[in-house]
Structures are given as C-alpha cells and as structure tokens.
Design a protein around this nucleic acid. Structure first.
Lengths: 200, 200
DNA sequence: GTCTATAAGTCGATAGAC
DNA sequence: GTCTATCGACTTATAGAC
C-alpha cells in the first residue's frame, strides 16, 4: 500500500521539480548541481534527496513530464480538417508552448544538444512514427492539390525550428529586438510564412 | 619579445582547441571537464594547462574564433544586389555553416541557452546594430515593392532558426529522417520557403 | 521530515622531477 | 615540454541526531 502524499510532500516535490526545471534548462544535466536546485527549492540538500533518490531521478521525471505534452500539438493535426488551417493551428499551438513553457523547451534543447542520451530511442520510434504519419497526411493534401507540394518532413522541421527558436534563443532575440515583445511579431510572421508556403 | 610557436606548440594548441570544441559544444561550459578535453586532445591534464592557463581561457578563445566568422554571412548581404537573390544567398551561406561547422553552432547554442553570460554585451551592441542595419535594407526593398512586406527582424530570426536547427538538433533530425541525408532536402525546402515568403 | 556532519569521489589547478 | 603526485574546493550521496 502506497500512502497518499501529504500536503507538505506535494509542496516540496513540486518545489524541487520547478527548481530542477529552472536549473537543468539553463545548464544541462551535467552542468547543474544539487546545491543549485536545493537552494532554488528552498530546501537543504539532504532534504531534497529525501524526496528524490538522486539528481538523475529529478531529471528523469522532468523529461517524462515534458515528453507527455510536447507532442500533443502535432498529435492534434487532423487529416479531416481544412489543410492550411490545420498546419497554421499546429504552428500557433507550438509557438504558444514556446511562450508559455520556455524552460521546458530549453530542457529539451539541452538534451538534444548533448546527443539525446536519455530519449534517443523515443525519438527513433515514437517521434519518428508520428512525424511519418503526419507527413503522410500533409503529402496527401499536396497530392490532392489542396496545398503546395513541399517536403512534409522539412515543413515540420521548419515549424519546430521557427517556434522553439523564440524560447531557446530568447536572450538573443530580446538582445536584438530591445524593448519590443518577440511573440507579437512572431505570431504574425509565422502565420504569414506558413500561408505563403502552403499556397498551391 | 614573444617567440614564434614551435611546430609542436602549434600542433598541441590546435589539438586542445579542437578537443575543447568537441566537448564544450556537447556539454556546455559547466558540464565539460578538463579531463575530457585532455583525453580528447591526447594530452595529460597538466600538459593541457601548460598551453592554456585555465578552462575558461580555452572556452574564451573558441568563442572569439566563433564570433569572428559567425556574422560574415549576414555582413555580406548587399543593399545593391537583387533582393530575393541576396536573401536566398544569405540563407544558403548560413545553412552551409550549419553543415560544415555544426560544433561551432552547438557551442553558440549552449552559450545562448545558458543566458549568454560571456557574449550578452556583444549581442546587444554589435549584433543588434548589424541586424538593425540589414533589416533596414530589407525594409527598403519591401517599401520599394521589390519583395513582400514582411517583418525584417523576424525574417532574419527565421533564417537563423531554420538553418541552425539542422546543426543544433541534428540528432533529432536524423532520428526522424532515418537514412535520408538532411541537408539535401533542407537546401531545397529553404530555397522554396524564402522564395514564396518574399514574393510580393 | 529536516537538519548537521561527513563519507567518497571528482573538479580545476599547481609543484616539482625529469 | 611532459610527466606523476597532490592540493583544496566542490559534488553526489549517506549516516545519524533531533
């Protein structure tokens, strides 16, 4: 019998995961220390390790939580919808993820930059399967003349690149834009871009 | 009087910088160790520190070398050229950098992800100045009706995002594409995309 | 549940022999 | 120029008092 977590357990576990997300997303797994995470969580280091058995365990939970929701926008792409509207909606959902969950985006970027040691199998199986499936839908739309005939895999890559850039390179984007808010212009630009690219 | 470096010095310094690029680009500054770099360079750790005074010094040289050439493609964008061809050529030069210097791209990505602590000033001054200058050129082309009227800053961001994605997320791109070579499709796709986006 | 204290190992960097 | 040996600080993780 596993006892339900007390309120104090829930609060501390949540604080540790939030702190871990802050630190891991900035410095990557190897560049992060338990001292940093413990301080950000407002706990002592031994107390942190009372809730999670190791540094690796915290990182693992964060990656699992991330992957759970990361593919939802693509999963929602519907072969029975209006083609251009479907791709546009996908890109805007992905951009909203970058805006609302930039730390999650950077956690993912760090993992990929380091060679994806913990999720490479998932990329090669689950991710590849879903991308191939959605690419086939886009290709069918193109062959039916409903959208322009562009490479569907690279179309999906371009949506990933365009949207994640605003989270992962946030510092650079803001350094160049100064006081202007990035996401206002990004929303308009990406809509224009996709509309033009897909016009037959 | 600084003596000219001997052949053995040149060889070891080059080996250390190459090794440092390998390691720093994968794990970031904090996640990298001198042991890793020394082993990759084929030297003992103390011998490595005979050539460079510190870990920071190796990283600093690598970042300087990177920044020297990183902005060359954008610098070459010429207001007197044919507008669409100029932007296309810029994107293809940038894509070639990703293909030929992926470690440099990932070194830069790691630095930005960590908040750009060592180059934030450069981003806010030199980079911003050059982007604003080139954005003004693109804007003038648009106002003259030579290309479509898109936000020039976000156009430049989109070229950065699209091209760097193939270096920084190389593992993911290859996991999804399987055996297909990424850069063949990317070259065609990006040319199509930019042509369509810029068509008035 | 939370703490202090500390074990056990790794890190960047140095000393000194050759 | 290159090595072995090592210092002191830091890092993950554990022991045990409260």
């Amino acid at each position: 019998m596993t006892k339900p977590p007390t309120r104090i357990q829930q609060r501390n576990q949540a604080a540790i995961l939030t702190a871990g997300l802050d630190v891991f997303s900035q410095f990557g797994f190897r560049g992060s220390t338990l001292d940093q995470i413990a301080e950000a969580a407002g706990l002592s280091k031994p107390n942190l390790l009372y809730y999670f058995p190791s540094k690796e365990a915290i990182h693992e939970v964060l990656l699992e939580q991330l992957l759970e929701t990361w593919l939802d926008p693509l999963r929602a792409l519907d072969r029975d919808g209006e083609p251009v509207a479907e791709v546009l909606a996908y890109a805007q959902r992905k951009l909203a993820l970058s805006r609302d969950y930039p730390r999650e985006s950077r956690l993912f970027a760090n993992e990929i930059l380091q060679g994806a040691p913990r999720i490479l199998d998932i990329l090669r199986t689950d991710l590849r399967r879903m991308v191939d499936e959605k690419a086939a839908i886009i290709d069918a739309w193109a062959k039916a003349g409903k959208i322009a005939d562009v490479d569907p895999h690279h179309l999906i890559f371009s949506i990933w690149a365009l949207t994640q850039h605003y989270a992962d390179f946030d510092v650079q984007v803001r350094a160049v834009l100064g006081d202007r808010e990035p996401y206002d212009g990004a929303t308009v630009f990406i809509e224009t871009l996709i509309t033009k690219v897909l016009r037959p």
